[in-house]
Design a protein around this nucleic acid. Structure first.
Length: 107
DNA sequence: GCTCTGACTATTC
DNA sequence: CGAATAGCCAGAG
C-alpha cells in the first residue's frame, strides 16, 4: 500500500479502506475512519480532497447518505452506473444513498 | 511547532 | 427539515 504515500499512515489507511469498498457499496466518513481505528471523519474527507485522485471518493458519503460538497451530480452518475442503491428524492440534489443497503461492512 | 482550515458528526433551536 | 453550534482529528501553511 505505501504507493499512495503522502507523508502519513493515516492517508494510506484512508486510501486503503476507500479502495477496498466494492462497487455498488458505500461507507460513511465515520465508518471509514473507524474501520482503520483512527477516528476523524473530517480527516478522511481531507485525504480525499488532496489525494482523492484515482480514488472512488463517491463511495464515501456523509452520515446522512449525502455525497460530498457540490459533487452530488457527479457522484450520482457513479451510483447509477455501479448500481448503488439510492433513495428517491424530490430534487436532483436532494437524493441520498440507501445506506441500509449500500453501507459496506468490512469483516 | 503553532494556527487556520476543512469532501465530518451529533445536538440543539 | 434547515440553520447554527460545538467537538473531533489530521494536513497544509
Amino acid at each position: 500500500m505505501a504507493v499512495f504515500d503522502s507523508g502519513g499512515d493515516y492517508t494510506d489507511a484512508v486510501i486503503a479502506v476507500v479502495s477496498a469498498i466494492p462497487p455498488g457499496r458505500a461507507m460513511t466518513y465515520g465508518d471509514v475512519a473507524w474501520t482503520f481505528g483512527h477516528p476523524g471523519a473530517r480527516a478522511v474527507g481531507m485525504v480525499m480532497r488532496y489525494h482523492g485522485s484515482g480514488l472512488p471518493w463517491w463511495r464515501v458519503v456523509r452520515a446522512g447518505g449525502h455525497p460530498p460538497h457540490g459533487l452530488e451530480a457527479e457522484a450520482r452518475r457513479h451510483y447509477e452506473a455501479e448500481g448503488t442503491p439510492l433513495l428517491p428524492a424530490t430534487t436532483e440534489a436532494g437524493y441520498r444513498i440507501d445506506l441500509r443497503q449500500a453501507t459496506h461492512h468490512p469483516d
